[in-house]
Nucleic acid binder design. Structure first.
Lengths: 227, 227, 227, 227
DNA sequence: TATGAATGAGGTTTCATTCAT
DNA sequence: CATGAATGAAACCTCATTCAT
């Protein structure tokens, strides 16, 4: 008396009715898409108004979802902020890696120009990380969790710059007794300042940094003051 | 039944107490001192907890004043935040001016080292501007008032660096065709990155920047890529 | 493209899956078993956390069922609470009936001891009615439905005690002019106090009540104060 | 030029103006009265609707105060509930103490009758503790804080009953080998049952308990079953 | 029949600000 | 000028319930 029903993925037999469709009610992809929908909405709000000025209601409205729906995917506003933060601070590695890996290493002004250009492309048009980053830095000031978070993201970046500085020195492009760590720190230090000038003062572009670094690198040896 | 108290200028009667002396009209100096008392309290709170996590109640308590008293001197929390912000972003000019004014100009690595050392002294030990600055940057992202504020403070600083770069070039320490604007921007860009590394990553000091800049300035001319 | 599946009574087509077998119409027994599964889960939660602190989500999780499944069997949380409540307050009759039915009636201290012992067995180890009961009393304070519910359960119990008191009097174990109603009420009143002392104060057992009643029953006639 | 202003309590001199009135802006009594106003409102709500069904908004409305005002006096709803709870469970000691202290001790039925009458007077008309008590018991089931709270209130009451039982025995009104602890527990156990019957079943009064206890105390020695 | 994602009203609590005293 | 009690809008979050699949 059991009818021949096609059995396949998602069609299972159970003890009450004979066959029920056990397909996930919504696909895994749908869930992930919802998460993204929420994160996109949140990011848009955060870029527009900032973390603190954005209320959960703002996010609900922007996402077109109810409170409950959002809280199904993120258990607190903090969790959303952290997601966006992580995302914002982690978008830098790729380009740097490629630049660092080149042989011979590109000169610093070129490396920096290319990195800034990459950040502008992936930041201003898509992630607006230039607006988000300072907010994350700000959070990091009083929340050791965020601070560690950023530190963890920054350390590999720092390491890449150090490798780059070593390559530079090994290729004879830096004095043999120069400290790759100091060079790494100095180049790393340029990034936040570039971002802030871009947003607050304007009038700065990747080329500015390139030309500035180029000029500094070609100052005459006459005026030294190393340790 | 009203006691015979001399009534005269400054002596007023009110309904609660019988007489209060409304006379000496608290000195101008006293007013300013009260303002400072409030600002000191606010700054302490902001450094300890951040702008957003600090409630007005926190400030009242820290200042040992009532709500009404504080609101007599500042008409909103925003006004207090702005005061502290201005203060925090304006503490940089002095040392830079002295450095820039020297003839011949000190080499970049020395100029930067001395500036950072000055900021550490006046920042970390007294103002903790390293903690406040990122919060101000963060505010600036979404409040054009703050942004202009900072821009206005930054422009003279930028101008000083440009003057310095010109001096450098005129003294033959930079290529004659180099762009002082680009050099100025580049040196200015180092400051926020130094502050952030100091707080978040640690392991950076004025000497680090000095050594890094020194090494970069002594890279061989072999690897150029100017425009 | 529709697979050729026999269509017949109980085999229906729906829009999601193609065919589901709607046949055996899950047995009545199965339905009842599902109800029990849910009630068991709910009771466990209620004992663990209380009615109000238990969310429907808690019950879903404990039962291993979905929201929809639970709501198919109970149309609201209130209905579940009521089910558990009824169950909790109705578990007392059986033992009492047996005790009351005995001839000659056991003396009060023995009747009470046996009843308490019975409640402990069926309460503490299985139903934990000692924890549930006060919650039900609490609900009864502001919900006349619950109040009537309890009253309806309590009235037969009360009647049994009254019968018992009459038997006692008829057997010459109480003064001939004593009021069975008053005795019934008094004995009935001992139960909640026993439960609460057991949970809150500890140090009470069926024997305590037996000894206490025994002592009271053997006080000397010298000190009377009847109406 | 300093005017002769009456100095007295609350009139102080300070450095700005010469005299300011330092009277507490509102009197200590006013503060306490506000607390009572809130507690009265809360109690009314709790009696009317129960702890859980009463929202803070209900309390604000009943008290005629704003949210902020209430939260100035109580830092959470829990704190309010606890205040009312403590109050409700602690109103029982006085009358019992007086009864217990009498020499010779009144017979149990009289002691109990008088205590119940006292509770009715101070409970039903003023505190409605008959409605509140079961709610507190209910809370105690899952909150050890409440449980300890109640236990702490109950222990002295229990001790008083034990003293009473000892007095009873010493006065020859209980068998010399009877256990005062068991008698104490038994009499204590009657109270909750009386309260619940009063609210749920009705038809019980202090006299009921008196007559019931009287009858039990005059049962014939023929039917014993002590240990 | 079962699922669980989605809803949205409503909960408690905070906090910048005012104003009667 | 100073006080601090009071305000009340708005914040974050929960949870009983529904309904498309």
């Amino acid at each position: 008396m059991t009818p021949s029903v096609p059995e396949g993925p998602g069609i299972v037999k159970n003890e009450y009715s004979f066959y029920i469709v056990d397909m996930p009610r919504v696909s895994e992809a749908h869930l992930e898409q919802r998460r993204q929908q929420i994160l996109d909405a949140a990011r848009a709000c955060f870029i527009r108004k900032g973390f603190h000025e954005t209320s959960m209601q703002d996010i609900f409205a922007e996402a077109g979802l109810s409170a409950g729906a959002v809280y199904r995917y993120f258990k607190s506003k903090t969790e959303i902020v952290e997601s966006i933060s992580s995302e914002a601070i982690s978008m830098m590695g790729g380009a740097l890696y490629e630049i660092v890996a080149e042989h011979p290493p590109p000169p610093p002004e070129e490396a920096m120009e290319r990195l800034m250009a990459h950040m502008l492309e992936n930041g201003e048009s898509y992630l607006n990380s230039f607006t988000l980053a300072p907010q994350v830095w700000s959070l990091a000031m009083h929340d050791s969790g965020y601070r560690n978070n950023i530190a963890n993201v920054l350390r590999p970046v720092h390491a890449l710059w150090t490798t780059y500085a070593e390559n530079l020195r090994d290729a004879g492009m830096l004095p043999p007794d120069s400290d790759p760590e100091a060079v790494s720190r100095t180049l790393l230090a340029l990034v936040p300042g570039f971002m802030l000038q871009r947003v607050i003062l304007g009038g700065i572009s990747p080329e500015t940094l390139r030309d500035g670094l180029y000029a500094l690198r070609h100052s005459t040896a006459a005026t030294d003051s190393s340790s």
